[in-house]
Amino acid sequence: MAKVGLFFGSFNPVHVGHLIIANYMANYTELDEVWFVVSPQNPFKKKESLGNMYDRLEMVNLAIEDTDNLKVSAIEFGLPQPSYTIDTLTHLAEKYPSHDFVLIMGEDNLETFSKWKNSDVILRDYHIYVYPRPGYSGNTLKEHPSITMTQTPMMELSSTFLRKSIKEGKNIKFYTPDKVLDFIEKKGLYS
């Protein structure tokens, strides 16, 4: 049974922080693969602030195309929006019965996790690998048996910072792979 980590996000745009987290999870934990699950709409984010979902999917594809144990999933594109993690997990479990799915999330998400739809069911039925985030540390959920705190390198980089930098005409080389940068420039995204 393949153990697959699900890394949900808007990836608007994908950047080296996302890639480092995914690579760490795929290579330094017992996960066989990590899937970037590109969310068409996060229930906690304003829809108009999101880049086109197909552009965001393509940028993740470009970022990971030469990597064996990192994949991209558009599974949520065909599900009702906004996407709730529990619904996606249920759908994936039915579609891939030979996979053992693990949720990957940042420590910041633990703060609001109790507000998620069916968070109790997620904790009961799934394992969650948590990567550290700057400024977060005292969450009681950390002690839950379904939660594994990882030693993933801490990342301060955010997609918001990249979008703001592009809008201001700043150079974002090294923050995202060159292929993603070329795609952003060709399509005039975020400017």
Rank of each mutant, 00 (worst) to 15 (best):
Y126I: 07
M154W: 07
P145M: 05
G188I: 06
L92A: 13
P80E: 14
S137H: 13
H91D: 14
K167M: 12
F101Q: 07
R163Y: 04
I20P: 00
L181E: 11
P40L: 06
H91A: 14
K95N: 08
L162D: 02
V130D: 12
R56P: 01
V72A: 03
V14M: 04
P43Y: 11
N109W: 11
F36Y: 08
I64S: 05
M149D: 10
F36Q: 01
S165C: 11
Y96R: 09
G138F: 10
S146W: 08
M53E: 15
I64H: 03
S10D: 04
F36W: 02
D108K: 11
V72W: 00
V130W: 07
S39R: 00
Q41I: 11
I147G: 04
H18P: 04
V37H: 06
G169T: 06
K45P: 08
P97F: 14
D55F: 04
E94R: 15
L103V: 15
N12F: 02
Y84E: 06
V180H: 01
L50D: 05
P177R: 03
S49H: 10
E30W: 06
N61G: 03
N42G: 07
G188E: 08
G138Y: 10
V4Q: 09
F44T: 03
S39C: 14
P177G: 07
F7M: 14
K46Q: 14
V38N: 06
T90A: 14
M1L: 11
H15T: 05
L6T: 08
Y126A: 09
D108G: 07
V72S: 00
F7S: 04
N118V: 00
L19G: 01
T90Y: 13
N118L: 14
E65G: 00
G78M: 10
F161K: 10
I122A: 07
S119P: 05
S98M: 12
P97K: 06
D120V: 07
D55S: 06
F183K: 01
K115Y: 13
H127Y: 04
F36D: 00
R133C: 11
D108C: 10
P13V: 03
P43V: 09
R56Q: 05
M154K: 11
Y28V: 01
P97C: 13
G188R: 03
Y175L: 15
Q41C: 06
A93V: 12
M155N: 13
Y96D: 07
N12I: 04
D68W: 10
N139W: 10
K187Y: 08
L141W: 06
K71L: 14
E94K: 15
Y54D: 15
L110F: 03
K164L: 12
P13K: 02
H15A: 08
L79G: 07
T150H: 12
H91L: 10
Y28K: 14
V121W: 09
K71S: 12
